[in-house]
Design a protein around this nucleic acid. Structure first.
Lengths: 171, 171
DNA sequence: CGGCAGGATGTTATCTTATAACATAACGCC
DNA sequence: GGCGTTATGTTATAAGATAACATCCTGCCG
């Protein structure tokens, strides 16, 4: 099946938006996804998901670990990695390979291979699902006789909000 | 301006090929590139490059470290990382983000943003430069108002040689 | 020749990221 | 309640990467 995820041509959110809304909808969707799949969204897992959604910047596993440490006495790495693995399997978070970091998925449930735009200035990352990129990859890989299983598409650069500042900085 | 690298629609080499040839041409090209850029291809750097080219499988920095350890008394991580950084700056090796590993570039000199096909069965990786993928990314990112600086395109899957075996294994 | 400036390498220590292996606890079902 | 399964806790260590400083080499200038 082809990815059914809707393509948002403006993947970066406004700098000022009601972020609590992002979090609550993410948690609601997570509950839905888990209910459908039979996965158990435990307190710990929900907590980790909430932490990942603290901002639109990818978060390292050890950042999450530290944040969890604020709320609980002792937390060890496997705790966090296991929760992240579960969330990833459910399609609720993605891993950004080029950053060794994790970010929440804003359209879980829809099968898709995300494309990530990472701003080197503000650190935010946004997910895209441009069908043309998907199609071009499938095409090129098919010609190469390659069976694609897991694509990784990540773009490092400047987001629309940081572009002007960075350019000013150059002058 | 645009990448001038030639697109090879069959990026994977035959399983049996004269690999010494790959190595010698890679070293020759490296010498040329460094001569042109003014970079100093020292014995150590050449050695690391040669190790990266030992096979068509991406090699971890610590694999290189261990291999170097065979030939020299003591080698420490920074030695290897510095050599790799130099080679990368010269465009002679690429880093595969999703593997934390390095692979030799077979067309250095030509500016390009590589696309990597990684076989999960045999571990080989091949570099591609499909202009359609490049174009699709540039297009999608431009619409998003994003300034692309460093694209990462990696595809995990099955190479043409491993596809049949893996499919047989499923049956 | 002698010395000096830069770049390259050596050395030590440490940091970040991730997982293996095993123990315990919670849950869901009959 | 007992039992199998799943989730979490705990300890230790593997794997990947860099900071900071010392030393050495090399080419160049006087």
């Amino acid at each position: 099946m082809a990815p059914t995820r809707a393509h948002d041509p403006r993947p970066f959110k406004r700098l000022k938006h009601d972020h609590r809304r992002c979090v609550t909808t993410a948690l609601a969707r997570a509950a839905k996804v888990c209910a459908a799949s039979g996965g158990r969204l435990t307190a710990l897992r929900r907590w980790v998901l909430e932490l990942v959604w603290q901002s639109h910047r990818p978060m390292g596993a050890y950042d999450i670990l530290a944040a969890l440490g604020q709320k609980r006495e002792t937390v060890a790495p496997p705790t966090v990695y296991r929760a992240l693995e579960f969330l990833r399997a459910q399609g609720l978070v993605h891993r950004i390979e080029s950053l060794n970091a994790f970010i929440g998925c804003d359209q879980p449930g829809e099968p898709h291979s995300g494309q990530f735009l990472i701003c080197r200035a503000c650190g935010r990352a946004a997910e895209m699902a441009d069908g043309r990129i998907d199609a071009a990859m499938r095409c090129g890989l098919a010609e190469a006789g390659f069976t694609l299983e897991r694509p990784t598409v990540e773009a490092l650069g400047l987001c629309p909000d940081c572009r002007p500042c960075a350019e000013a900085g150059h002058a």
